[in-house]
Design a protein around this nucleic acid. Structure first.
Length: 679
DNA sequence: GATCCTCGAGTTCC
DNA sequence: CTCGAGGATC
């Protein structure tokens, strides 16, 4: 049967394209396209070759793993080839894999009818595959995968990784042992490395895998030694006497020889549904892992069964990688617009062609500031790599330089505020540019009203940014004080406001007339005075009058208030306009209530950090309970943190706590502690 | 003077 | 959640 010319042409194009990306990726550590795009190209070629086997050539990228090794490193021929794994991207592909395995094993009499296959499940770390050879227990050679047959000799660099033993230990050391595993970097260590690189004005790495690759490719092992590389063994190549019957036993044996094995993450599962349950479990806690993974791997546990199943081309039939949907994707950067914040901060925001990444469609992403844009060298018109890092917030990672159009434009910081036209000012040694318009600027006025109405300030439910926008645009309110003059009748006239909503809002406004003093001070929106400092000030001065009357020395006497914060407060109350607002609030019936001083109780001196979603309490409730028992709630984990309270979907703070050995509680643990403290 | 710890500010999507 | 920067501490 003849192949249609269109398919043949498409296959040739795909090969050339994949080769180009491979070269850029493996030889230069420079991604030209996102992983998702690369995977798509590869999949298309694989499908095409599957449909038309006569199109397969020896040089096709589907027939090898990577590109040629660099000349600078010696090359190593693997005594047992380093295989790649087949991929599954959805549940059905996993079920099909299990069915193939089960059918083959049943036909060979290795599985009883109705019996499920036993699998060994492990994480698929996003790093570099490595083969490390021990002879008589001594580390003699380490090589990258390369094209699977031949890799680069990186022995000197691998020897610098502290978790890899230079000599095996224990009894029964085999004459020859080739360990296969992954070299990778932990996320926290990767961040620290990049901080250090930045501080020294050296290249900042795009992601942990690139950092690991770059570190291994250093010709000077002393440089590699400074990099936080790690290794986990997941398999083996050449091995003399094999004492194990199952894959899991084999890994236990490797661990007993002193090799790092990711034991805590392994699971034995039965049949396809067991595999899928493991996948879902890992996916749910992926964000809490200290390293990046791009999926999970399933292997038939029984080694004799593995031998029965054998290999297809370059991949084993007894194992498969189940990949997560890409968290990175490429899209077009349509424009860079600027937003004006409450303090006048000008924030450039990337407008993106909508792209589906990590489960949601992303159209906007913050670019933080001018320096950030220049550091990343992103330009309007670029194709950019977009990521949903760990949490939720999308981030522009880097431009795809190979796809930069000739008319790509650099971002130019505006010189006048796009909202009010005032001058933009960027003080020396500050990274943030600001609109100088102050409350004259409608954007700043709106933002400061939204801030004052917020949950941590006056807590006026129903007064959100949409309504504030309308009220300010129509000139109905100019300052916070005007809010207290709003009536049900007039509010009901606004867009999306029924009579009921208007009544609710007026009730909420009325309740806001009795805020704690701390909330009122916070609501004023004085620069550098946030929730915590506002409460400290309230406790120290006791009334708004004595805060307004305080001079520099009086302010500096408050703990955690230094010259910068004190200066900001003095400047705020030096503005007649701000005094007027306070007077107008008082005239409008706003009466701050005394701040309740924390009683010295059981939890005095203990610092807590909350993370994730607790089963019953909201984070605010839990926080209030801790504070009322005399404890302190802080935002970031450090050595001084006494307890981390972790709920569902806890993130990096949990990882940090584990790293520092801080006690981790769940909600029940917190309740128990509170009960004990009040007893 | 350097380092560590907190706080403040800004932000995305559903 | 993350970054930058202010304040405290050694």
């Amino acid at each position: 049967m003849a192949v249609d010319p269109a398919s043949a042409e498409r296959a040739a194009w795909l090969r050339a394209e994949i080769d180009r990306h491979n070269h850029a990726y493996y030889v230069f550590d420079q991604p030209v396209v996102s992983d998702a795009h690369y995977d798509r190209l590869m999949r298309e070629l694989q499908d095409l070759e599957l449909a038309h086997p006569e199109l397969v050539t020896a040089a096709s990228p589907t027939q090898r793993v990577g590109a040629a090794p660099l000349a600078a490193f010696g090359s190593v021929t693997h005594s047992v080839p380093m295989l790649s794994l087949g991929n599954a991207f959805d549940d059905d592909e996993v079920r099909a894999f299990d069915k193939r395995v089960a059918d083959t094993l049943r036909a060979a009499g290795r599985l009883q009818p109705g019996e499920a296959v036993e699998y060994f499940c492990e994480l698929k770390l996003d790093g570099l595959a490595m083969s490390i050879r021990y002879e008589s227990g001594q580390l003699v050679q380490a090589a990258t995968r390369g094209d699977g047959q031949t890799g680069e000799d990186v022995t000197a660099n691998i020897r610098t990784i502290r978790s890899i033993p230079l000599a095996l230990r224990g009894d029964g050391i085999p004459p020859v042992l080739e360990v296969r595993g992954e070299v990778f970097m932990n996320l926290a260590e990767f961040d620290r490395l990049n901080d250090a690189q930045r501080a020294r004005d050296e290249k900042v790495f795009v992601n942990p895998r690139n950092a690991a690759a770059g570190s291994l490719r250093q010709l000077d092992p002393r440089v590699t030694a400074q990099r936080p590389l790690r290794f986990f063994a997941y398999g083996w190549g050449e091995v003399g006497e094999n004492p194990a019957l199952r894959h899991g036993d084999m890994l236990d044996w490797l661990a007993s020889l002193g090799l790092p094995v990711n034991t805590g993450q392994h699971v034995i599962a039965q049949g396809a549904e067991g595999l899928l349950a493991y996948y879902r479990d890992v996916a749910a806690r992926r964000d809490r892992l200290p390293y990046d993974i791009d999926g999970v791997v399933y292997k038939v546990n029984d080694l004799a069964a593995q031998r029965t199943l054998g290999f297809v081309a370059r991949a084993p039939r007894f194992a498969i990688a189940h990949k997560f949907p890409a968290q990175e994707a490429t899209t077009k950067l349509l424009d860079i617009e600027v937003q004006v914040g409450r303090t006048g901060a000008i924030t450039p925001v990337a407008r993106l062609a909508p792209v589906f990444v990590g489960g949601v469609t992303v159209t906007n992403a913050t670019l933080h500031n001018e320096d950030e844009i220049n550091r990343k060298d992103v330009r309007i018109g670029d194709t950019v790599i977009v990521r949903r890092a760990g949490d939720v917030i999308p981030e522009v990672v880097a431009p795809v330089l190979g796809q930069r159009p000739t008319d790509a434009r650099r971002f130019v910081m505006v010189s006048a505020c796009p909202v009010c036209g005032s001058a933009i000012e960027r003080l020396e040694d500050e990274t943030i540019a600001r609109c100088t318009g102050g409350l004259f600027c409608p954007a700043q006025r709106k933002q400061s009203l939204v801030h004052a109405a917020g949950r941590k300030a006056l807590d006026i439910e129903g007064l959100g940014d949409k309504l504030v926008e309308q009220l300010v645009d129509r000139g109905r309110i100019r300052s916070l004080a005007d809010v207290f003059g709003l009536s049900v009748d007039e509010l009901a006239e606004y867009d999306r406001m029924g009579r009921k909503s208007a009544e609710n809002l007026v009730t909420a406004i009325d309740q806001a007339r009795k805020p704690t003093l701390g909330r009122l001070i916070f609501a004023l929106g004085i620069r550098h005075v946030g929730e915590t400092t506002a409460r400290d000030l309230a406790l120290h001065f006791g009334s708004i009058e004595s805060l307004m009357a305080a001079d520099l020395d009086a302010l500096l006497a408050v703990s955690d208030v230094g010259p910068v914060v004190a200066g900001s407060i003095l400047r705020f109350f030096a503005e007649p306009h701000n005094i007027e607002i306070v007077r107008a609030l008082q005239a409008g019936g706003v009466e701050p209530q005394a701040e309740e001083a924390p009683r010295t109780l059981g939890l005095a001196g203990k610092t807590f950090v909350l993370t994730g979603t607790l089963p019953v309490w909201s984070r605010e409730q839990a926080s209030a309970e801790i504070v009322s028992a005399g404890g302190k709630v802080s935002g970031s984990v450090s050595r001084k943190t006494n307890f981390v309270v972790a709920g569902e979907d806890a993130g990096s703070k949990l990882a940090k706590a584990q790293e520092l050995g801080v006690t981790v509680l769940d909600e029940d643990g917190l309740r128990a502690l509170l009960a004990q403290a009040s007893a």
